[in-house]
Amino acid sequence: MHSLIASPFLEQHLLLRPGHKDGLLLPEENYEELRAHDPAQPAPAWLADTVRDQWGMDVSGRPASDFLLVRQPSTWGYSKASWEVNLGCNYRCKHCYLGLKVNSGMAWDDKRRCLDAMAEAGVLWLQITGGEPTVDKDFIRSYRHAYELGMMLTVSTNGSLLWRQNLLDLFAECPPYRVTVSMYGATKSSYDELTQRAGAWDLFIQGMNAARAARLPLRMSVIVTEDNAHEEQAMIDLCESWGVEREVYTNMTPTIYGGGEVLTAQSKDHLRMRKQFTGCNAGHTFFHMDPHGLVSICKIGRDDQISLPNEGIEGLARLGAIADRLMLRTGGCSGCTLSGSCTVCRPLAKHFQEAKAPLASYCQHGRKAG
């Protein structure tokens, strides 16, 4: 199993080590040398020196195939993707933007083909999410296959199952780039209330204890809602006591179906003005795939989806044009005098409008009126 990846990344080339945040820019001539290198032969001296200096690894004299995977160039131009492996979850969080939790998805053969297509499209960083991805029956082999294809993997999880030995063994053998754990409270009462599952806090603590003992590359997403707003600082303090980096999220969004029922979880005192939206490369250099292999420009803009199992990688050729069309300021935002400094993208604004959400939750006009 490889412990180093040499790969194209947009217009550059990178040398990466799974399980580590740091990487190195690789000059094109060095990358091409590795592409042409006989994997049965020892690694070039410059590579051995580089990885020893960067990561303390000794690969001198070892066949390159023992530790190095060289990703091939792609003509498709993608670098990142996210994948909802399943919408099913063992929690029923009040704020969840996915709405209904349905355990459905592709058969394993289709999942494998979609991962193969992602790799061919150039995807180097893949976020595996859900629902709760670790409850999916194919999570372990999906993760392993993506790793074997040379992807740097992030798992977004509620942490409730991270104590399971089969997951810990998987992450030890195939190190993730990051494990992002959502945090829903600092006490049992608030945590179980928001997740609407008795015992959820106990599972969270058990999972976090196991993950920290295994030295997984953790990052916390601290979710602040009406139920746990009084514990915001306590959640931050807990992250700091664990020595785990964190990011705080306070703004709720409608469901992917345009439902506004989850907006009631918003802590009004924690509603924050978002930063100005200045554009993104959704659909051009990254994309999202749902449990059925339907590809969209991102998790929010799910209109005009492309079936990767049915169309294959050629279907991605339409994604850029779809992205350009969905980002146009139309349908309720056209002619807006503040559109040049809007704080949400057009697909997200559409979700808020369909949910009949208060303007203050997403639009500057609402803030001015308030």
Rank of each mutant, 00 (worst) to 15 (best):
H2L: 12
A6M: 05
S7V: 13
P8D: 07
P8F: 07
G19S: 06
H20E: 15
G23Q: 07
L24H: 01
L26M: 06
L26G: 00
E28I: 03
E29Y: 08
H37W: 15
D38E: 13
A40M: 11
A45V: 12
A45R: 10
D53V: 07
D53Y: 02
Q54H: 14
D58P: 03
S60M: 05
P63E: 09
P63C: 09
F67L: 10
P73Q: 10
S74R: 02
T75Y: 06
Y78D: 01
S79T: 07
A81K: 08
S82H: 06
S82T: 12
Y91N: 13
R92G: 10
L100G: 07
D110H: 12
D110N: 12
D110K: 15
R113M: 14
C114F: 01
A119L: 04
I128A: 04
G131L: 10
E132W: 01
E132G: 01
S142R: 00
Y143E: 06
Y143F: 10
A146Q: 03
Y147S: 10
E148L: 11
M152D: 00
L153M: 09
V155W: 01
S156C: 12
T157K: 01
N158C: 03
L161G: 02
W163N: 14
Q165K: 15
M183D: 03
G185C: 08
K188F: 00
Y191N: 09
E193Q: 14
A200T: 04
W201Q: 09
L203S: 14
F204C: 12
Q206K: 15
N209G: 08
A210P: 05
A211D: 04
A214I: 07
R215P: 00
L218T: 04
R219D: 11
R219A: 12
S221E: 14
V224G: 02
N228V: 09
H230T: 11
E231P: 03
E231Y: 01
I236H: 04
D237T: 11
D237A: 15
V244N: 05
E245M: 09
E245R: 14
R246T: 08
R246V: 06
R246I: 02
V248L: 07
V248M: 08
V248Q: 09
Y249W: 13
N251V: 05
N251M: 10
G259L: 09
V262H: 03
K268S: 13
K268A: 13
H270C: 09
H270K: 15
R272A: 14
K275A: 12
C280K: 08
H292C: 05
S296D: 02
S296H: 11
I300S: 08
I300L: 12
D303P: 00
D304I: 06
Q305N: 04
I306P: 04
E311G: 01
E311A: 13
G315Y: 08
I322H: 00
R325T: 11
L326F: 01
R329N: 11
R329V: 11
G331E: 15
G332W: 01
G335Y: 04
C336P: 01
C342H: 01
C345Y: 00
P347Q: 10
K350A: 13
H351Y: 07
Q353C: 02
E354T: 14
A355W: 02
P358H: 08
P358R: 12
A360I: 15
S361G: 03
S361V: 03
Y362T: 07
C363K: 02
Q364G: 13
R367D: 10
